[in-house]
C-alpha cells in the first residue's frame, strides 16, 4: 500500500468509526463505561483478569434498566476524565465523588453511594489526628482524589504527602512501612486493606470526614458535558434500582451497612 492510499484508508476508517459513534450517541442502545479496577471492593480485577466489584455490578444493573448493551473499559484513575472527554467511553462508573472541580469538566448524575473518609495508622502508632499530631508525618493518598485535595489543602504545609496512582499501591507502601498514615474512603480501606491479611497491623484512627467542601455530595456517574439524555437515563435508572430493591440486593453482597448513606428511595 502506498502512503497515500494508506492515509486514505485510515481516514475512511476514522470516519466510519466516527459515524458509528454518533449513531450510538442518539439512541444509547450501546454504552461504553469507564471503570478503574484497582479499588476494591468497588472495582477490582480477579486472578482471571475479569472485572468485579460494587461499581461493576451497579454499572451492569443500570445498563439492564436502561436497556442498553454495555462494554466496560478499564482505565487508570489519572486519565479517567481525559479519556471520557476523548470519547474512549461515554460514562464513568468508578466511585467518583461529585466535586466542584470535577463538575467543571464533566456532568454528574445523582449520587449512587456516599461514604465518609478516614485515616488509618499502624495499631501501635498512637497518632492524634490534629495539626500538631500530624506534623512531620508521611501520609499516603491516591493522587487527584478528594482525599488528596483534602490533605493537600488542610495539612499540605506540615505533612509529607505521598501520592499514588492507585489505592493498591498506597496499601503496598503502608505494609512496607513507607508511610505513617493512609487517608482514604473508609469503606474501600476497610474492605480493601484493613480486613485483609496484609492490613492486619493497621486500624482506623480519628473521626469520619464528610465536609462537602472537599468530599462532595457523594459518588456519582460522570458523563461528558451536555450529554443530558444519557445523564437523565442514568438518573432514572438509579432511582428505579433504589426503589425496587435491586440496589439493596447488590449492596448487601458487599456491605453490612447502608452504603447509600440515607434510606433507599423516597
Amino acid at each position: 500500500m502506498t502512503r497515500k492510499t494508506f492515509v486514505a484508508a485510515l481516514t475512511a476508517t476514522a470516519m466510519m468509526a466516527g459515524a458509528a459513534g454518533s449513531a450510538a450517541a442518539d439512541e444509547w442502545d450501546t454504552i461504553r463505561i469507564g471503570v478503574e479496577g484497582a479499588y476494591p471492593p468497588f472495582s477490582q480485577v480477579d486472578s482471571g483478569g475479569a472485572l468485579s466489584g460494587f461499581d461493576i455490578e451497579i454499572a451492569n444493573v443500570l445498563c439492564d434498566e436502561i436497556g442498553a448493551e454495555c462494554t466496560l473499559v478499564q482505565q487508570d484513575w489519572d486519565g479517567i476524565i481525559p479519556a471520557l472527554l476523548a470519547r474512549r467511553y461515554d460514562a464513568i462508573v468508578a466511585s467518583m465523588s461529585i466535586t466542584e472541580e470535577r463538575a467543571k469538566r464533566v456532568d454528574f448524575t445523582d449520587k449512587y453511594y456516599q461514604t465518609p473518609a478516614k485515616f488509618a495508622a499502624p495499631k501501635d502508632a498512637e497518632v492524634e489526628i490534629s495539626r500538631e499530631g500530624l506534623d512531620g508525618k508521611t501520609v499516603g493518598v491516591q493522587r487527584a482524589t478528594i482525599h488528596d485535595n483534602f490533605i493537600s489543602e488542610e495539612f499540605g504545609d506540615t505533612v509529607d504527602i505521598r501520592r499514588y496512582a492507585t489505592q493498591d499501591e498506597a496499601y503496598m507502601d503502608a505494609v512496607a512501612g513507607r508511610v505513617d498514615l493512609l487517608l482514604a474512603d473508609s469503606v474501600t480501606m476497610a474492605v480493601g486493606f484493613l480486613e485483609t491479611e496484609e492490613g492486619e497491623g493497621w486500624e482506623f484512627v480519628g473521626p469520619d470526614f464528610t465536609d462537602p467542601q472537599y468530599f462532595g455530595e457523594g459518588v456519582g456517574i460522570a458523563v461528558r458535558p451536555g450529554e443530558d439524555a444519557l445523564r437523565e437515563k442514568f438518573n432514572d435508572a438509579i432511582a428505579a434500582i433504589l426503589a425496587d430493591g435491586r440496589y439493596e440486593e447488590i449492596q448487601n453482597k458487599y456491605f453490612d451497612f447502608n452504603v447509600y448513606g440515607e434510606p433507599y428511595g423516597e
Binding site: 486519565g79 493522587r143 488528596d148 496512582a165
Partner: peptide
C-alpha cells in the same frame, strides 16, 4: 506533569 494532569485534567 502527572500531578498537574491529575489536578486540572489537562494532559
Amino acid at each position: 506533569g502527572r500531578i498537574v494532569n491529575a489536578r486540572y485534567f489537562a494532559p
